[in-house]
Nucleic acid binder design. Structure first.
Lengths: 90, 90
DNA sequence: TTATCATATTGACAAACTTCGATATATTAT
DNA sequence: ATAATATATCGAAGTTTGTCAATATGATAA
């Protein structure tokens, strides 16, 4: 349950939900995310770390750029967790 | 997105995840939840309010007892939200 | 090497959150 | 009406979280 809690904590922030929606279209580098949001660079870096630690986002380093993309596995894990809560209820 | 954020915030707490898992088997009254957890009565009340406000739990008053159950609608909403994030990615 | 650019880390501060004891409210029983 | 019980609200203490400026790290370019 610890794993799911970490993911839900990560999802419970407006900026991080925005980041996920920006990654919906596919991989993006940090600098592009930064342009589309009104937060500082350290703040973005902080949020990306939380999303990666929660397994919701995966990263790839290319030269001095960091590329981020949605982590399908982590997303599926918590989706399954929620679906299990719903089924067989009652 | 505000609605989902509220739900995810609510899910990002160990005690509240425990409460949801306790409600998995079906409706329970607050006093029964209280017995199964090591938190004070005001704390439980606080968490139940957060879960209800987030639409993850529904309540029913019967005399002096409050009965709580999982809110299928709210759970489905965020499950759908996550599933939409996953599909068509790429 | 030195300069420049992209990202990460540190340190500090304010805001938000969790928790509980004390107390209030509401319902039932006597 | 009074007592007892279940739950909610209040107020305060301690903890966690989000944020940014300053700085560090790592990579490329000159």
């Amino acid at each position: 349950m610890q794993k799911e809690m970490k993911a839900f904590k990560a999802l419970g922030d407006e900026n991080r939900l925005t980041i996920l929606s920006l990654l919906y279209g596919g991989e993006k580098c940090a600098c592009m995310l930064l342009e589309e949001m009104k937060i500082s660079q350290p703040t973005l870096s902080h949020h990306m770390k939380i999303l990666c630690d929660a397994n919701l986002v995966e990263s790839r380093k290319e030269g001095k750029w960091m590329h981020y993309r949605l982590a399908e596995n982590g997303l599926r894990d918590i989706t399954d967790f929620l679906q299990n809560l719903m089924t067989k209820e009652e």
